[in-house]
């Protein structure tokens, strides 16, 4: 219950941050990705702000085996740089550049009632489901 409630709070704060930062607005995101046009550097500051807090939080997290609520610390352990990682990330970047939505902002804009965000999130879930099917086939082959 505690775990679920703190997840809700983290999601809510995350969503408010995305709205405040301008990340939830694809027009703003594309303004940042448009390096050779009239470039809007705002999103570099979003990343900087998030990472300043993140560096402190993860430095504390690394020192602990359990969270402050007593749950297991699940820090990723993988460090392999695979072609999968790069190809997947490039596919994601192309999709991000086409519409200006990445997963978090898509979900928040859906909550704001933006019809194109609803279509984006539905397509994204379809893409994730397709990945699931391909992975299962690959593993059973």
């Amino acid at each position: 219950m505690k775990y679920t409630l703190s997840s809700f709070v983290a999601g809510l704060v995350f969503g408010l941050g995305l709205l405040l930062s301008g990340m939830a607005n694809p027009e703003k995101v594309l303004g940042f990705l448009d390096l050779t046009g009239a470039w809007d550097p705002s999103l570099a500051l979003v990343m900087a702000g998030a990472i300043i807090v993140g560096v402190i939080a993860f430095a504390i997290a690394r020192q602990r085996h359990v969270s402050f609520l007593g749950f297991d610390m699940r820090l990723p352990s993988g460090d392999d740089i695979s072609t999968r990682l790069i190809i997947g990330s490039v596919m994601f970047g192309i999709g991000w550049g086409l519409a200006g939505f990445c997963p978090g902002p898509g979900v928040v804009a859906l909550g704001a009632g933006e019809p194109k965000a609803v279509v984006f999130v539905a397509s994204m879930i379809a893409g994730m489901a397709l990945f699931q099917v391909i992975e299962q086939r690959r593993q059973s082959a």
């Binding site: 775990y3 703190s6 997840s7 709070v9 983290a10 999601g11 704060v13 995350f14 408010l16 941050g17 995305l18 709205l19 405040l20 930062s21 301008g22 990340m23 703003k28 303004g31 009239a38 809007d40 550097p41 705002s42 999103l43 500051l45 979003v46 990343m47 900087a48 702000g49 998030a50 990472i51 300043i52 807090v53 993140g54 402190i56 939080a57 993860f58 504390i60 997290a61 359990v66 969270s67 402050f68 609520l69 749950f71 297991d72 610390m73 699940r74 820090l75 990723p76």
Partner: peptide
């Protein structure tokens, strides 16, 4: 179009959410 203050504070709030999640739930 440059909005440095809302971008920076919004970023700090996003960082806070990530901090809450790792420190309270131990997750990314």
């Amino acid at each position: 179009s440059f909005t440095p203050w809302s971008a920076l504070t919004g970023g700090l709030v996003i960082g806070l959410a990530a901090a809450l999640f790792i420190l309270l739930n131990g997750r990314i």
